[in-house]
Simulated scan of single mutants.
Amino acid sequence: MYATGVCPYCVRAEALLKRKGVADIEKIRIDLDPERRDEMMQLTGRRTVPQIFIGDYHVGGYDELYALDREGKLDPLLQASA
């Protein structure tokens, strides 16, 4: 997950993933490493955080993560990447 230290949506995304049993979330702090921001933008075409990947699948931001959960699609995605 690409994130910054002060992003409330990053905190929400992390909390949702932890509630789903994800213990190890790799956070890439783009506020501390500007080169990683460029990498994120190349991979996703987006400038905002969080940018969440589950395995190689680009979920998007918090809204997309939450929508996957509401639709019942997040758990199967997490299980497939475990």
Rank of each mutant, 00 (worst) to 15 (best):
9 Y>A: 03
60 G>P: 00
12 R>S: 08
58 H>G: 01
11 V>Q: 08
53 F>D: 01
28 I>Y: 03
64 E>P: 12
23 A>N: 09
28 I>R: 15
10 C>V: 14
10 C>M: 09
37 R>M: 09
82 A>K: 13
50 P>I: 01
39 E>G: 01
63 D>Y: 08
54 I>H: 07
47 R>D: 07
41 M>Q: 12
73 K>W: 10
78 L>P: 01
29 R>P: 02
12 R>W: 12
80 A>E: 14
63 D>N: 09
23 A>K: 13
55 G>I: 08
66 Y>I: 13
12 R>D: 00
46 R>F: 11
24 D>H: 15
36 R>M: 13
61 G>F: 06
67 A>M: 11
2 Y>A: 01
65 L>F: 03
33 D>H: 15
7 C>L: 02
13 A>T: 03
76 P>Y: 02
66 Y>W: 14
45 G>C: 07
67 A>I: 10
33 D>A: 09
62 Y>I: 02
45 G>F: 05
56 D>I: 07
78 L>Q: 05
33 D>I: 03
35 E>D: 14
79 Q>V: 12
50 P>E: 00
72 G>M: 07
3 A>K: 14
36 R>A: 15
81 S>G: 00
76 P>N: 03
23 A>L: 11
68 L>G: 07
14 E>Q: 14
49 V>I: 13
78 L>M: 06
66 Y>T: 04
13 A>M: 02
32 L>G: 01
15 A>D: 15
19 R>I: 09
57 Y>Q: 13
66 Y>L: 10
32 L>M: 07
67 A>K: 14
4 T>I: 07
7 C>H: 11
25 I>V: 15
30 I>W: 03
80 A>Y: 04
63 D>W: 02
12 R>Y: 07
36 R>P: 01
60 G>N: 05
1 M>G: 04
20 K>V: 08
59 V>G: 04
40 M>S: 02
40 M>V: 08
48 T>M: 13
19 R>K: 15
77 L>K: 06
14 E>L: 09
63 D>V: 12
31 D>V: 13
40 M>F: 09
67 A>Y: 06
3 A>S: 15
21 G>W: 05
23 A>H: 10
79 Q>Y: 04
25 I>H: 03
1 M>P: 05
49 V>M: 02
10 C>D: 03
70 R>C: 03
68 L>C: 08
46 R>E: 12
70 R>Q: 14
46 R>N: 11
80 A>G: 07
21 G>R: 10
6 V>C: 05
8 P>Q: 08
32 L>I: 06
18 K>N: 12
53 F>H: 03
24 D>T: 13
41 M>I: 15
14 E>W: 10
28 I>G: 01
52 I>Y: 00
58 H>N: 11
36 R>Q: 14
60 G>F: 08
75 D>L: 05
81 S>Y: 07
23 A>G: 14
68 L>F: 12
50 P>V: 03
41 M>E: 14
72 G>A: 04
16 L>Q: 06
31 D>E: 11
63 D>C: 02
10 C>P: 10
26 E>G: 04
45 G>N: 09
14 E>N: 09
34 P>M: 00
14 E>C: 06
1 M>C: 07
6 V>R: 05
14 E>D: 15
13 A>C: 06
49 V>E: 01
64 E>L: 12
64 E>F: 10
60 G>H: 07
80 A>L: 08
8 P>G: 08
72 G>T: 14
71 E>W: 03
50 P>L: 03
56 D>T: 08
73 K>M: 13
50 P>D: 02
43 L>K: 05
20 K>N: 13
22 V>F: 04
45 G>S: 06
44 T>Q: 08
